Simulated scan of single mutants.
Amino acid sequence: MTQTILHIDASARIQGSTSRDLTAQIIERLNADQVIRRDLTSPLPQLTEDWINANFTPANDRDAVQRDLLALSDQLVEEVKAADTLVIGVPIYNFAVPASLKAWIDLLARVGLTFHYTETGPEGLLKGKRAIIAVASGGTQVGSDIDFATGYLRHILGFLGITDVQFVAADAIMADAEAALKRARTAIEALAA
């Protein structure tokens, strides 16, 4: 069975990034047939009123300008749809996800494409996928009261239909880097390909 991974790195740091190092280790461990790469150091646009209006215009009624406004978002959605597994590198910045990752999520969460509303509430349309999130933080312990990143990511991915979410954490690195990295490596070794 072939496996496609969508590899997303959200760290602003290219060199010396713990989350980037962890995602590289995870990708190697999973040994996928195909890896789609999305590096969020290339900035994604923020949502605008024109983008929102284009998004809520029925697809058949969109003009060329609206289709162009949604083209990148369409591409991001297709990348996720093509993947069996998402591997996302997330540094915790100021207790939450980087703005670049939030921009990616905003462009991905589209009613009718990645979720829809039913009589019983919203339903995610990206089911059957796995997400492995490599988290790195200097002082924030994953799962603590000041971790506003991992709970948000689990929730938003679940909202989109991705409920198989695993975290590999190198957290509170400033307290004990060696122990934090050892825990993360152990978690990576335990990942099933």
Rank of each mutant, 00 (worst) to 15 (best):
L70T: 15
L153T: 08
I132D: 02
Q141S: 07
R29T: 04
L113V: 08
L70K: 09
G89E: 09
D61S: 07
S73G: 15
P91M: 14
D39C: 04
A172P: 02
T57F: 04
R110D: 00
T41N: 01
Q141T: 06
A82E: 05
L76V: 04
R20T: 06
T41P: 00
Y152M: 02
A177D: 03
L70H: 11
V77F: 00
T114W: 01
A180S: 09
A177S: 09
P98Q: 04
L86I: 08
D74M: 06
S144Q: 06
L191S: 02
R183S: 01
Q15C: 11
I14V: 11
N60I: 10
E123D: 05
S11C: 02
E79L: 15
I105D: 08
S11Q: 01
A12W: 09
T118H: 03
Q66A: 15
N94P: 01
S19T: 15
I36T: 14
L22M: 12
T118Q: 07
E28R: 15
R183M: 05
Q34I: 03
E28M: 08
Y152P: 00
R110N: 02
T18I: 14
K129R: 11
Q75W: 04
K127C: 09
L22W: 08
E49I: 07
L86C: 10
L191A: 02
S73M: 13
A82V: 11
L191D: 00
Y152I: 05
Q46P: 10
D145Q: 08
G124F: 00
A134I: 06
L125W: 10
E49Y: 14
K127F: 09
I8V: 07
S42C: 10
S42L: 10
P45L: 07
V111A: 14
R67T: 09
T48M: 05
I92V: 15
V90E: 00
I132N: 01
D21Q: 08
S19P: 04
G143H: 02
I5G: 10
V65R: 14
M1A: 08
R183K: 13
P45M: 11
H116I: 07
K127G: 13
V80S: 11
L6D: 07
G112N: 01
L125Q: 07
A32Y: 05
A193Q: 06
A172Q: 15
A172T: 01
Y117W: 03
A172N: 06
A177R: 11
Q75E: 14
R183Y: 00
D171W: 04
A131E: 10
A10W: 10
D68I: 06
A24L: 03
K102E: 02
I146K: 12
I26M: 05
I133S: 04
K129M: 14
F148G: 11
F159R: 00
A24S: 05
G128Q: 12
R154D: 14
I105C: 00
R37A: 05
L125A: 03
F159H: 07
G121N: 08
K81L: 06
T18S: 05
S144F: 09
Q15T: 12
I8F: 10
L157E: 04
D9G: 13
E123Q: 08
R37W: 11
A190K: 15
A32C: 00
G138D: 13
L160R: 02
A109V: 07
R13A: 06
I26G: 07
T57R: 10
Q141E: 05
L76P: 08
V135R: 00
N53E: 13
K182V: 02
M174T: 15
A64H: 03
E123K: 14
S17C: 13
D84H: 11
A12Y: 15
R38Y: 01
L108K: 02
